[in-house]
Design a protein around this nucleic acid. Sequence first.
DNA 1: CTCCTGTCCTGCCGGC
DNA 2: TGCCGGCAGGACAGGA
Length: 275
Amino acid sequence: MPELPEVETTRKGLEPHFRGRQVVAVEVRRRDLRWPVADNFEDIMRDRRMTALRRIGKYLLLDMEGGWSAIAHLGMSGSFRIEKEYPQTLKKHDHLLLQSESGVWAVFHDPRRFGAVLTCPTTGLGQHKLLKNMGADPLDEVQFTGKYLWEKLQRHATAVKVALMDQRIIAGMGNIYASESLFGAGIDPHKPANRVTRKEATLLVKAIRQVLCAALDSGGSTLRDYVSGSGEMGYFQHRFQVYDRAGEICVKCTGQVQKVVMGGRATYFCEHCQN
DNA sequence: CTCCTGTCCTGCCGGC
DNA sequence: TGCCGGCAGGACAGGA
């Protein structure tokens, strides 16, 4: 499930092959992703230089010369991989391919098709429906502070776990790292967001950064292998402390990790360590 | 506004 | 071994 670290790792993996380079070929094999791939996608990409690859939350932005940008989302199961030449045999669910003037191909693969590829004039990105309400980036030390998070949480009566996943509050936070962060901060995921104290918010900000940075470090190491092979970018082995460990012994105490469903999402925590 | 539910899609896993 | 139901999950759409 691509969350911020997976999307950022993907961005870093594509960047050396595409930034400042011309896109020389575009192939869209299936347009019916979450939304149809934008009609003008090929036109804004082909024979144009990619000036920047950016990330806003879980969205990947490809800024192209000519004034347009592509907005990509990996959804649930989307990934990119780099191929040194056009794939001998395309895999099932390879929906989109881009060739850089360096020769390499980036292949977008997405079995569940929850991903999306849209377009928008670069100067209008800030007003784009999908992006305009995006909250602070948790890696931004200026914007994302204990005060910021506390003020945002004050407005919500729902469980803090559910609020943490709200992209208007924290851009890029997803289900896995929400559980992990609350465990790191020792906060019960059930606690109403507006009862999180100022002090807890500060702890949470630190925990969020720590958890995301650890995941980014894992991503960085897989990126090195990935350059030579044909693996999918952005998915890496990472040891979680509570996520998907229901029934296992807590890494901090002798209790058992619990699983509950909150807002329709699996949530993992330790009753003893989080309150 | 906030909050809650339904929806999209395919791979995988457990049960029979 | 094969079939099938259920589940996973990001985030929008739409209704309360």
